[in-house]
Design a protein around this nucleic acid. Sequence first.
DNA 1: TGTAACCGCACTTATATACAACGCGTGT
DNA 2: ACACGCGTTGTATATAAGTGCGGTTACA
Length: 184
Amino acid sequence: MRHMDVVNVVGSGSLDVEIELSQLVDDLDSSIADYDPDKYPGVYLRFSDDTPLITIYRTGKYIVTGAESREQAHRYRDRFLNLLTEMGVTSDTSNTSFTIQNYVFVADLEKSQNLEALAIGLGLEQTEYEPEQFPGLVYRPTDASCVLLIFASGKTIIAGATSEETAQRAFADMQETLEQYQLN
DNA sequence: TGTAACCGCACTTATATACAACGCGTGT
DNA sequence: ACACGCGTTGTATATAAGTGCGGTTACA
């Protein structure tokens, strides 16, 4: 199979405890935390440049975005929980939830594509291609819960999968369809 | 001053999250 | 007629891909 790279992983979880956000921000190092309730209701926490962003809400729910892998998302989630426990904001977080909600992949068909022909081959009902609106073709497979954006260069984005396997299978299935119609 | 080159940005997709503001419906 | 609740929309976050647009810069 042609290679696929994960470029973004999004996960969400809950601390199961309400958080006083202004207090939390006061206790955090201002270099890692940002909070502007007039602009957005969540607190942004980033440990350092090029690491995932964690957004924390009043309800205790939080999101991890911008991770490069499932492992990295979990690693920074753990680091976040440890920090809150050290600060005394939370006590026992061992049974709190955390789920990967979205994977974004970049793949390459390694061959330029005729998107008009591709729309027909993949099925007009499953595709959207409006080059004046956006240069990529949007493909929504009926049997996979993810979306593929295919570009004339052959570069492809797979978004919305909740597992790496789902995305990989969707990309492989699409390539198979292209072969069937000899579009590749 | 004109033109060319370049930069930054919005376009679209998914997803969790929350809050404001809006429309619309129903009940009082 | 008014109040209340619910649904929806826009706001913000990350991330890649292409195209086109506007603005800025540089040079002749």
